[in-house]
């Protein structure tokens, strides 16, 4: 077990964005958090990444309890990929400087070779190295973001909706790439998505979140067999099959 969270609660004022969430992630597995906007799934990921410091409960990484802030050693083992490839790369920095930055932060050697190798691994040639983000497509940018996360050779990747801003054909390529990299580097994934099918494809185990709570945890085979018990999970499943006039009738309005 590489990661475990107990009683994880995040409150923004009155609202409990995450309410007593508990889950564990095994080393080398890929774990999914599914939910709609406002479910608290991204908040959980941001707490793990140390981007939100105001939380209660306990989180243990590799057997050690995590505090409010994370040290550099933590970030050399855990890296994050963000949802929006248009926003997560600095607009004034070339791909080269984006990749050199984590190397400098973690005081790693052989920058040249590592940058070249990282670009190659995510399927971008060295021709992309000195371009600016605005010269790249969404899919290419997300590949750069993945390269940037992997360049410090972490054990775990936190993926925040890594393909939701991409076209479906590009999504397939990026998901395949992530899967291949996970196997090649024996990585652990924690992936957040609103898309059940994407999570079922990528993750062996998943938890469904609704209004800050984890309502159900199951493995993907059970999900595929339709063994979800929680009404919210069932509703998500039904909705993800596509538009259906009669089905829409059965959803209560959410105002």
């Amino acid at each position: 077990m590489i990661l475990s969270a107990k009683n994880l609660t995040v409150a923004f004022g009155e609202m409990r964005a995450v309410d007593e969430a508990a889950f564990t992630v095994e080393r080398g597995e890929s774990f999914g958090l599914v939910g709609e906007s406002g479910s608290g799934k991204s908040t959980v990921l941001r707490v793990l990444a140390g981007l939100i410091e105001d939380w209660s409960g306990s989180i243990a990484f590799d057997g050690k309890a995590l505090g409010r802030t994370r040290d550099r050693a933590f970030y050399s083992r855990v890296q994050m990929v963000f949802q929006d490839p248009y926003g997560s790369l600095h607009p004034r920095q070339t791909i080269d400087s984006a990749l050199a930055e984590p190397l400098a932060i973690h005081k790693m050697d052989r920058h040249e070779q590592r940058i070249e190798k990282a670009l190659e691994e995510v399927g971008l040639g060295s021709g992309f190295r000195f371009r600016y983000p605005h010269q790249l497509s969404g899919g290419q940018r997300q590949r750069v973001a993945i390269a940037r996360a992997l360049i410090v050779e972490p054990e775990m990747l936190l993926l925040d909706e890594p393909t939701s801003a991409l076209d479906v054909s590009i999504q397939a390529e990026v998901l395949n790439l992530l899967d291949a990299l996970r196997k090649a580097h024996n990585l652990t994934f924690v992936m957040v998505s609103h898309n059940l099918a994407v999570v079922a494809h990528m993750c062996r185990r998943l938890a469904v979140m609704n209004r800050g709570r984890i309502v159900e945890e199951m493995d993907r085979d059970a999900l595929r067999r339709g063994e979800a018990k929680d009404p919210y999970t069932r509703r998500l499943m039904a909705a993800s099959r596509g538009y259906d006039r009669k089905l829409a009738e059965s959803f209560k309005t959410l105002d």
């Binding site: 994050m80 949802q83 790369l89 600095h90 932060i105 940037r148 410090v152």
Partner: peptide, 26 residues
């Protein structure tokens, strides 16, 4: 608030480094 600042934070950069190398250029 931009994601690219959150991204360098999640790479483990110190506050001063973020200000000097990522915010000042903007």
């Amino acid at each position: 608030k931009a994601d690219y600042i959150a991204a360098v934070q999640a790479q483990g950069a110190s506050g001063m480094r973020i200000v000097l190398r990522h915010i000042v250029p903007m």
